[in-house]
Nucleic acid binder design. Structure first.
Lengths: 206, 206
DNA sequence: TCATAATCCCCTATTTTGGGTGAACTAAAC
DNA sequence: GTTTAGTTCACCCAAAATAGGGGATTATGA
């Protein structure tokens, strides 16, 4: 049984080049290719692709929404994003939506074939820079204005814990936590939990 | 200028095998190798490695703490974890601590060399399954007991927002949000924000 | 020594939260 | 075509949490 592939890509030159490349690869079968998400989604359940190569910059419905709908309609479908965009926000949106891989278009054609085999074997093919972005997203900012203790407190605030709970966990008085919070708010220039959490997440302080 | 390498690995057979392999690779220079983190850290600033290959199961101080301390002592140091463990928690702890790559020991030796070049070129070398785990960590559980609306509410709760704020954002009454929260608590079998957030994060509902 | 960090205390006022109970309307599913 | 699930809103209560203001004591390290 060959690996069934669908393509969603609005540039028809690229679409045809990919189709040619993949159809000439052992075990691969391009079952369909579309220039837009709407048409692709209408045929998804009849095409039954194993892997979909999806562009993100598409007319009307964007690729991220296309990924989300794919996963709702047919969860076993595996998606690899193939795009020129390396924008942080877009990458994470695509991954959150359900993309299992993310390639940028400056790759050699062989990487595409490799990626399809990789995702089928339980991997998550990513371009170099994307992998770095993804791993970096786990790591904290080393130039935080907050002290270690303040960071510890803010992390617990972000877990929805009350001052009392945090105080108990850190074996200090509730008043101490209050002081830390006041200092955190002052340093981050915010006036509420929600603002502090948002700013801290954005700047990777927690 | 060769790429300076340090090894931290308690099995001396593996340590020597890696040293031999890497010293016989163009542009690579193993400047030091240790069987424990303590000794490695004492010599870090004089060894000045570009890349450290770090095992996680080490006597006394564990690898994760070793990574953290490395980043504090000498932030420009790049670390690749080389271990047999594929445990979720350990992988994410290592990445959060500052690891820039994560390889499991069932790889061919050539992958090690490739990984070192990859991390130097701005990548994040990972074994197949690790990459999958990392990407999967961005994605939600598809079998959530919560409705779309409830998920939307819980996400905002996890951002530290008050019922009033959420109500405004979703253009509904505060009482509606309260009802959603009651239903969320009932479904998740919890009785507070903190518990709900914890459970939801653990089960990837948000 | 001076600055920073971490600890604790008091006061006030408002908001938030959790729990209980009930009900109207919609849309999908059976 | 009735039932179910989801979303919406209402009103009750009491305890808890929050934000802002003020001030204080230690300890550490530059």
């Amino acid at each position: 049984m060959p690996i069934r592939l669908s393509l969603v890509e609005d540039d028809h030159l690229i679409r045809e080049a990919f189709t040619d490349l993949l159809n000439n690869t052992e075990d691969f079968l391009v079952v369909s290719s579309y220039s837009n998400c709407e048409e692709y989604l209408r045929n998804l359940t009849t095409d039954r692709p194993d892997v979909v190569l999806m562009d993100l910059e598409l007319p009307r419905m964007g690729g991220v929404e296309g990924i989300e709908r794919t996963k709702k309609l047919r969860p076993q479908t595996q998606l690899i994003v193939v795009t020129v965009y390396e924008n942080d926000e877009l990458v994470f949106k695509a991954l959150c939506a359900g993309a299992g891989g993310y390639l940028t278009k400056n790759m050699p054609p062989s990487r595409l074939i490799e990626a399809i085999r990789e995702i089928r074997q339980g991997g998550a093919p990513m371009s170099t820079n994307i992998a770095r972005m993804v791993v970096a997203s786990f790591q904290k900012n080393h130039h935080s204005p907050l002290t270690a203790r303040e960071t510890e407190v803010l992390e617990r605030i972000a877990q929805g814990k009350s001052y009392t709970t945090i105080a108990d966990e850190l074996f200090v008085d509730k008043e101490t936590i209050r002081t830390h919070i006041k200092n955190i708010y002052w340093k981050l220039e915010v006036h509420s939990k929600a603002e502090a959490i948002e700013k801290a997440r954005k700047e990777r302080l927690i």
